[in-house]
């Protein structure tokens, strides 16, 4: 188990290092990054000055070593727009996004588990067909449009939720629903597939032969064994939640990494983009480790091997 975990950790760290390298070279893709860091309309003089003070005239490898050194000190430069360290600008809002993502993912898994079990229990029946169609529909709705239509109905027409911002509990409804859209669609299908397999397997059949109640059979025996693929896909989907967070940030003016990243793009604040990509990459790597650990908890065989 430890060997497995450490191997996964090593490959994750390699991916993270790769992300840092990619970010560095992306910034230099179009020559000097001065025009990326400086506000639009900056004069040539300013650019030259900037290049000199930040050493962008040095050979690329020297710049790269310096960049790696800075990153090792968690120094991503200063946000031009917010006038504070870029990393602080990102980490100060990251918990907000994390909270939203955890709430959305937990609810998604719960909803998908119920729907998937219902569909699998009456396989190919009308309920199954309805749920499968619904999950396909969920995966076909653009989240930004869903968010806007939600605002139109719930906020503008019914007035039960605020149009934007973070206030009481009702302000969470639309952002969470928007984030849940894609994961619910995918996870329901995964749960259904895993449950059909589990329900058809020997131990469930023998439990049924022993006369166990159907409900107990489905939820205690089959669902537990169907948990692994569900966890794995849920972990994979979690990276996609950042996509949703960007949309939620722009549509609902929801404080979080999404708003910061989009603002950074609109205000040409490259330092914040760098820091943001690093923090999100780190978050996803940590999440993958967490998923592996959950695997071990859910499946004793992983723990032994």
């Amino acid at each position: 188990m430890l060997i497995f975990l450490s191997r996964r950790l090593v490959s994750s760290v390699i991916a993270l290092v790769g992300v840092v390298v990619v970010v560095f070279f992306l910034g230099r893709l179009t020559g000097s990054p001065a025009h990326l860091y400086l506000p639009q309309g900056a004069s040539q003089e300013m650019a030259d000055n900037f290049n000199r003070t930040h050493g962008f005239n040095d050979p690329l490898w020297q710049q790269f070593i310096r960049f790696v050194g800075d990153v090792a000190h968690l120094d991503f430069g200063t946000s031009i727009w917010q006038q504070r360290p870029a990393l602080t600008a990102v980490t100060s809002v990251f918990p907000q996004t994390l909270l939203l993502a955890v709430v959305a993912m937990t609810l998604s898994i719960a909803v998908a588990a119920v729907l998937g079990c219902l569909a699998a229990a009456r396989r190919f029946g009308p309920v199954d067909k309805l749920i499968t169609f619904g999950s396909l529909a969920c995966a076909s709705i653009p989240d930004f449009w869903f968010a806007l239509v939600g605002v139109l109905f719930l906020a503008v027409h019914l007035g039960v939720v605020p149009t934007s911002g973070q206030s009481d509990l009702s302000s969470w409804i639309l952002p969470v629903a928007t984030l849940m859209l894609a994961p619910v669609g995918v996870l329901t299908q995964v749960v259904r597939g895993a449950m059909i397999e589990a329900l058809g397997s020997g131990y469930v059949q023998s439990a049924r032969a022993r006369g166990l109640a159907h409900r107990r059979l489905v939820y205690r025996h089959a669902l537990r064994n169907a948990a692994l693929p569900i966890i794995s896909v849920a972990g994979d989907r979690a990276a996609g939640l950042v996509n949703g967070a960007v949309i939620v940030g722009t549509v609902f003016a929801w404080p979080g990494i999404g708003t910061v990243m989009v603002d950074a793009v609109l205000n040409r604040d490259f330092a914040v983009i760098q820091a943001g990509v690093f923090v999100i990459g780190l978050g996803i790597v940590l999440l993958n480790v967490l998923v592996d650990l959950t695997y071990a908890v859910a499946d004793p065989r992983v723990r032994v091997s």
Binding site: S11, I14, L16, L36, L241, V242, N243, I247, F270, G281
Partner: peptide, 23 residues
């Protein structure tokens, strides 16, 4: 495969956002 991991680690929208910012 490591390269594919790197692309996979970053959320697609974020990656596109950053690249379209640079280009």
């Amino acid at each position: 495969m490591r390269l594919s991991d790197i692309i996979h680690t970053l959320p697609s929208l974020l990656l596109a956002l950053v690249i379209l910012y640079v280009l």
